[in-house]
């Protein structure tokens, strides 16, 4: 059990943003956090890596309470890919090397340089290594953010909508990469998402949030049309195509009228 969330709440007690959140995450598995806009998916991720302080409950990483660790110790255990990053004029290599910061004491060691080099090769970023990040596309930026989190060498990866601004090819590439890393390295991934089809295809477990608390959780194959309808308020059908489950929204009343 790499991650255990126990009765977590966030916000003021009168009207908490998140309440009664409990779940666990195992190594080698991707958990997708799903739910409508504004339900608190990002807030939950930030509570897990202590960017936000929960008002109640515990977050245990590998058995240790995250609240008892200092920022550098947390950064050695949890890699975080934020939803947005601001590209500055540094090379991709240096942007990824930043992920080694929790491990760097005085100066960058040969080991740090080797790890970054290895991650760059693994993600197929060789041709970008010495290019400036502020000249890159959204997909390339996202791969660099992912690489930065990977070189932190943590057992847990938190990803906040890693594909929200990407085209189809880049979405697929990034998610396939994440899945490969999680399986190969036996780490755990927790990912917030909007795209249910990608969630079904790349996730192992799901967590539906509704009104600030957990509405349902389990294996992604168990997601039912009724569950989706009650969380998102829109009717759907779930089909299977070439072995992949596909979610198709039913007609919206406006369409029918026209």
């Amino acid at each position: 059990m790499i991650l255990k969330i126990d009765d977590l709440a966030f916000g003021y007690s009168s009207r908490p943003t998140l309440d009664k959140i409990s779940f666990t995450v195992k190594r080698g598995e991707i958990t997708v956090i799903l739910g409508p806009n504004g339900v608190g998916k990002t807030t939950l991720l930030k509570c897990i890596n202590a960017i936000l302080k929960p008002s109640k409950g515990d977050v245990l990483v590998d058995g240790d309470a995250i609240a008892s660790l200092d920022t550098l110790a947390i950064a050695k255990r949890i890699g975080y890919v934020a939803q947005y990053s601001e590209p500055s004029r540094v090379t991709a290599f240096d942007a990824i090397l930043m992920g080694r910061r929790p491990h760097i004491r005085w100066r960058v060691s040969d080991k740090d340089l080797k790890i970054v080099d290895s991650a760059i090769k693994r993600l197929g970023l060789d041709h970008l290594a010495l290019k400036y990040v502020d000249q890159m596309s959204g997909g390339e930026l996202q791969k660099i953010s992912l690489a930065r989190a990977l070189v932190q060498e943590t057992d847990l990866l938190l990803l906040d909508e890693p594909t929200s601004s990407l085209d189809l090819k880049n979405q697929t590439e990034i998610l396939a990469l994440i899945k490969r890393v999680v399986k190969e390295h036996r780490v755990a991934g927790v990912m917030t998402m909007h795209d249910l089809n990608s969630a079904l295809r790349y996730g192992d477990n799901y967590l539906f949030l509704k009104n600030g608390t957990i509405y349902g959780a389990g294996k992604v194959d168990e997601i039912s049309p009724a569950m989706v309808e009650s969380v998102y308020g829109i009717g759907v059908e779930i089909l299977r195509h070439n072995g992949y489950p596909v979610i198709i929204p039913k007609d919206w009343p406006i369409e029918r009228a026209a």
Binding site: V81, G99, P102
Partner: peptide, 16 residues
């Protein structure tokens, strides 16, 4: 360098 990349990312790598 880290805060240039964005506050969230910086916090994620342990920057206060």
């Amino acid at each position: 360098n880290a805060t240039d990349t964005g506050d969230e990312t910086a916090r994620g790598i342990g920057v206060r």
